[in-house]
Write a protein that binds this DNA or RNA. Structure first.
Lengths: 150, 150
DNA sequence: TCATGATATTTGTAAATGCAAATATTATGG
DNA sequence: CCATAATATTTGCATTTACAAATATCATGA
């Protein structure tokens, strides 16, 4: 049978797409993009990440991310630094301008979180977050298995 | 504060991206794409949808969708038909070949649903679905408000 | 130490995407 | 009935994206 609105990947995509769409439109007014925000948010969580880590934390494919970083660097939002202990690794750093932009986006991000979970109780929100983390872990386990098989 | 993994849009995107990624890779072996599957799944739910409805149900931007439909039409998976009561409207129909492809993707889709919700109880799964529908409705309400303001 | 393989990132290139404009058709008010 | 506005879809075009290949650096074992 499988009606569409009982299919988790569909529900997930649908909700995510709507939030991303609305949020993107809004921060366009701040002269930036959703992808750039994902990078800034990840680096706010922890600065000094390497490109591959950032790719993981933002869900941006690594070669795409490389070019997103080009753009952000040109805008002076981030800086690339070559790791001194391993010359292959590039680490990313938020500049003061990047921090200022982050601070302007943050209230918007917080507002969209509130809009998204509007009408959910605190316990429902906590459950939602827990289940979403579990979904991610489930998919991640699958990835691990596939890589191990190679 | 806002740590990233406590932020609903982030958790949503992250889980959705992982599922989409794994599923895409898999159905590539069937000679098709995630976007095409979204169209087929939506039309399986209800055939005869117009382009704008399909855009809504698949979360594919309408001009992008128009070209996805071009490709699927060339592959003989769907047919376009002009509505006889309104010449502006184009409705979409799955062909027998499209149905055969759908039948081959369906078991894969069902498997990914199972993988995603692995470890969740039936009641947790039901809760997850309910909360995701609510999130979508919340964002949709926002859209409605914005359009009404114009 | 040197050759070979592994890892991290970037770049080449073709395809996908999305905004805005164009096109086609229908609805509405005078 | 006609002009104008509204609606549905497609197309022009610049940007973004992703796969594969290239590049740069490091690790390993003979």
């Amino acid at each position: 049978m499988l009606p569409l609105d009982d299919y988790v990947p569909y529900l997930l995509n649908r909700a995510g797409a709507r939030i991303a769409q609305a949020f993107s439109e809004e921060i366009r007014g701040l002269g930036t993009t959703l992808q750039a925000w994902r990078v800034l948010a990840a680096l706010r969580d922890r600065d000094n990440q390497r490109v591959s880590e950032l790719s993981d934390h933002t869900s941006i494919e690594i070669s795409t991310l490389s070019r997103v970083l080009d753009g952000m660097q040109k805008q002076g939002l981030i800086a690339r630094r070559r790791a001194d202990d391993d010359g292959r690794v590039v680490t990313l750093h938020v500049t003061p301008a990047g921090r200022r932009l982050t601070d302007r986006i943050l209230p918007v991000a917080e507002r969209y979180e509130r809009i998204a979970i509007n009408g959910l109780s605190a316990s429902e929100t906590a459950t939602l977050k827990r289940l979403l983390r579990r979904l991610y872990a489930n998919m991640d386990a699958l990835n691990g298995k596939r890589e191990a098989a190679e």
